[in-house]
Design a protein around this nucleic acid. Structure first.
Lengths: 369, 369
DNA sequence: CTGAAAGCGCTAACAA
DNA sequence: TTGTTAGCGCTTTCAG
């Protein structure tokens, strides 16, 4: 069995004690220049790499802390994101990372409070899904000013100094939606987009991408862009009105997860000639896929987003790896035939996650296997 | 800051020994139902969370070896796969993993020799893309018999005892191809499939999926399935003949990477009414995307395949995590609008990775045997 | 079935 | 200036 070189081996070869090796390696006081160099040389020669787990264990505290603040609702989205983060955290724990998880109930709620409390800890990095840019941006800047690397997830925080953003490229999502729609409906149709709030970066960019692709290569005209403000009621009403007003409408792009009200309105109007491009995936959407109302869905892959966010942060902290300021994942495309291959549709199967390190006093809903 | 509760504290409160606590927590044998429950309860009550650094230290072999044998050609595919493996290897190196990379020049060549030489090392795991099942299967079985966990990548090795396979689900690829085609061409068209060798699992399954989806929900009829045996010449000739014979042919699914000869034949025949569904992506395909000959490509994501294969192996070795016997990735769908978001089209593959990378990760700057 | 104890590689406190 | 040693919390082996 391959033996990894450790302090002991260096000590043996350099003919000193293990304590001396430690002193040399960490530029601690109380060692002569000569022996230090000797030790450093043999360490170099042997290609020594520290065992970070052992170090973390010895110093008693974690190697470093990373804070996470994401919403809990909407569950079928953020549960995946959390799983992605936690799965990666399990690996990172092997090198001494520890996670502090401080979710907010829903996007934008209690952001101020949770984020501030997070900054009281001695963080090296922070993952946050920004809700209200106005409250989050200053906190992000404060964190970065203190050397805490901030990674925005899912949506960007414009005008902040965040180190990076991880998301499924929103502009591309919009373009994909337009391209797919052009395959599904007649070329001279009217189409519409239903979105959340256009002032959030994410939705603005989705609509922008949608428009630009429409303009670029199809005859379809964008009848309107509706803001539904994440309200089911509003989504439903506005769709109803839209359908009444426009008989030549054959496609709708829903940029939020809020597609069910739209489906309902469609059914109400008996408009089977209208195709939907939706966003993300959850079990209740499946019937609409099967009957063809939803032609495709743009999948933002929250699991991978979470995984990636933590990964770039950990790589950065451990080996100063540079972080690309924008990590945009390629959005997935959900169709009828691959529907069952997305974990979201297997709603029930929530294997309890153990193994995530949380500090005492956290909500630790975990079973240990 | 409270002290975290550990095995010791649980043992004290449950009035048992620390060894017993461990047995209870991990469902290990040799403990009575009664004590197990008692321990589990107090663990729950105390909100125990394991110290993962300590676990890693205790269980982690100080170092271990993992062997890799994949082809070098076709470069634009296997370079990605290698990058995925190496990127993940860089992380795993932090916990003592070491990689032995022994590629074969192309699929099936020198498999016997390279794999055997790999087995001379003291491996804990092996990643292999099986070319000739007849030569690989026995080697895999021999490895597994010696406790080496084997993960097949990209294609399975049927009838072997391999621990797991990682691939982009081939059956699903075929189904997706059929579904996409049905969006692109008239419903009563003839379609064809061009494949490599049907005796390889991978291609057989792709064609199977293609057929099953065609049968299931479209009027299209499968005119024929051509075996081109990975030969450019043969691909070209057979496509030429196919086009001459069938005027109602409007769609072709190319299950291999060998789509250029097909595109050529199409151009030769001036058949702009035929749409292609291809497999994977490389720069030379781009013009055919732009002029619409290729309607979509099924992307097998070799980078993630490589990453995943190594990851499951390392997780297994380090913490005995179970390996799912089949890890099938959801194949990607390449269209016009997301074309530029695949790293493959940035042929050189170096600089362009800031604002438009689909996955994070540096190219591995890793020295390997 | 249960307890005791030896490490895993490293840090830090104490001796020499 | 150097060497020695006791843990960190967990797994694992060996006795009882």
């Amino acid at each position: 069995m391959l033996k990894r070189v450790g302090l002991h081996e260096i000590a043996r070869q350099a003919q000193v004690s293990i304590g001396t090796v430690d002193r040399a390696l960490h530029s601690r006081p109380g060692i002569s220049e000569a022996t230090r160099n000797k030790v450093l040389e043999t360490a170099e020669k042997l290609g020594y790499t520290p065992n970070l787990a052992a170090r973390a264990l010895a110093v008693g505290r974690s190697g470093f802390l990373i804070g996470v603040c994401i919403p809990e609702e909407i569950h079928h989205f953020f549960d995946q994101m959390r799983d992605g983060i936690f799965d990666e955290a399990r690996r990172a724990a092997r090198v001494g990372m520890e996670l502090i998880y401080r979710p907010v109930p829903r996007l934008g709620e209690f952001e101020q409070r949770e984020l501030s409390s997070l900054l009281d800890e001695d963080l090296r990095g922070l993952i946050v899904m920004p809700g209200n840019p106005r409250v989050v941006a200053p906190i992000i800047d404060a964190a970065e000013a203190r050397g805490i690397r901030v990674v925005c997830i899912c949506s960007d925080a414009p005008h902040s100094r965040r180190t990076a953003v991880v998301y499924a490229n929103p502009n591309l999502q919009g373009r994909l939606a337009a391209e797919l729609l052009s395959k599904f409906i007649p070329g001279d149709s009217d189409v519409a987009a239903i979105t959340g709030m256009l002032r959030t970066e994410e939705h603005r960019q989705k609509v922008e991408g949608f428009q630009s692709r429409l303009a670029q290569c199809s005859e379809m005209t964008l009848a309107c862009v509706l803001e539904a403000h994440e309200s089911e009621e509003e989504s439903y009403q506005k769709t109803m009105d839209l359908l009444s007003d426009n008989a030549n409408l054959h496609g709708i792009y829903v940029t939020t997860v809020n597609c069910l009200p739209v489906c309902l309105a469609l059914r109400e109007h008996r408009r089977t000639d209208v195709r939907l491009i939706t966003t993300d995936l959850f079990p209740q959407m499946v019937p609409y896929f099967e009957n063809g109302i939803i032609g495709a869905s743009i999948y933002q892959d929250p699991y991978t987003q979470g995984q990636t966010a933590l990964k770039v942060l950990v790589d950065h902290v451990i080996e100063k790896a540079p972080i690309a300021s924008s990590n945009s994942l390629n959005p997935g495309i959900v169709l009828q035939s691959n529907l069952n291959f997305f974990r979201e549709v297997h709603s029930a199967g929530i294997g309890a996650r153990d193994l995530t390190t949380m500090r005492t006093g956290e909500r630790a809903a975990l079973s240990v296997g």
